[in-house]
Design a protein around this nucleic acid. Structure first.
Length: 260
DNA sequence: AATACTGCCAACCGCGGGGCA
DNA sequence: ATGCCCCGCGGTTGGCAGTAT
């Protein structure tokens, strides 16, 4: 087939963005909004490919980005979500307003992995280090799929289930610096599951039963964030306290014996 | 002071999926 | 039904800054 290159590479700049380029991009998006990234560079007078423009905007120039260090609370949210979703950085980022997938990915590889290792937890499997058992792909995938069976957010659930089915605890980046310095004792996946929680210090039981202090019966759709112990206005980006409002991320637990 | 090493992060690359003709 | 186009994602790389020797 052969996909054509995304841009005329010979006529595009690469590498770090200059202040002028940033200003042009911001000015254009302010005036026209985010639109077709492929045609944006030309329209904005930038010698960049559309992908580069999108990345620069998404990861650096967007006005709603939260700059600065991650809080401990954000750390814990990332860890919890990673235990369920694996390296689905965009999904994780979706739960952390103002943070980008790239930022979270970098932060994971440089900080959180080390943090987990210091706690004696394998950052890949979220199991105690030294444990002979690794998470069983099938079991984990099925469990995640069940937990994330979506009603109004099929993409999220499907992506999570797909990911975990394909690679339940995706290997960390093999070449990045964080991995270079920390990814030594991790297992390569596979092996039998004992049913033991992947991360014993985290309550990841999202599958059944009402959430804490919930007045919703188990069969009701349940917000993933809510099940993770988040609340709207906190790190949770949805509006779990406003039923019926848009932007919900609801997940309905499967009935007993139900499979996806 | 110079050099080597390490950590961090912005940016790039290639692929997969969805939409559309 | 098929193929193309575009977007978005995850993995990876490169360069800069800080630290150690």
């Amino acid at each position: 087939m052969g996909r054509s290159p995304c841009c005329e590479k010979a006529h595009t700049n690469k590498g770090a963005w200059t202040k002028e380029e940033d200003e042009r991009l911001v000015a254009y998006i302010r005036a026209h909004g985010e639109g077709c990234w492929r045609s944006l560079p030309k329209a904005a007078g930038l010698l960049r490919c559309g992908k580069s423009c999108r990345l620069r905007w998404m990861n650096y120039l967007r006005p709603d980005l939260k700059r600065g260090n991650f809080t401990d609370e954000e750390d814990e949210i990332i860890i919890r979500l990673h235990a369920i979703l694996g390296n689905k950085w965009s999904l994780i980022a979706g739960q952390l307003p103002g943070r980008t997938d790239n930022e979270i990915k970098n932060y994971w590889n440089t900080h959180i992995k080390r943090k987990l290792l210091a706690r004696g937890i394998d950052p890949q499997t979220h199991r105690p280090l030294g444990s002979a058992e690794a998470a069983a792909p099938g079991v984990v995938a099925h469990r995640a799929a069940a937990l994330l069976h979506a009603t109004t957010a099929p993409a999220l659930a499907a992506a999570a289930a797909r990911t975990l089915a394909a690679k339940p605890t995706p290997a960390a980046s093999s070449s990045d610096d964080g991995a270079r310095s920390t990814s030594t004792s991790t297992s390569s996946g596979g092996g039998a599951s004992t049913g033991e929680p992947r991360c014993p210090d985290l309550n990841l039981d999202l599958s059944v039963g009402p959430p804490p202090a919930a007045d919703t019966p188990p069969s009701q759709p349940v917000c993933l964030c809510y099940r993770l112990g988040l609340r709207a206005g906190e790190a949770c980006g949805c509006q779990a306290d406003k039923p019926g409002a848009g932007g919900f991320r609801y997940f309905r637990p499967l009935e007993q014996g139900q499979y996806i």
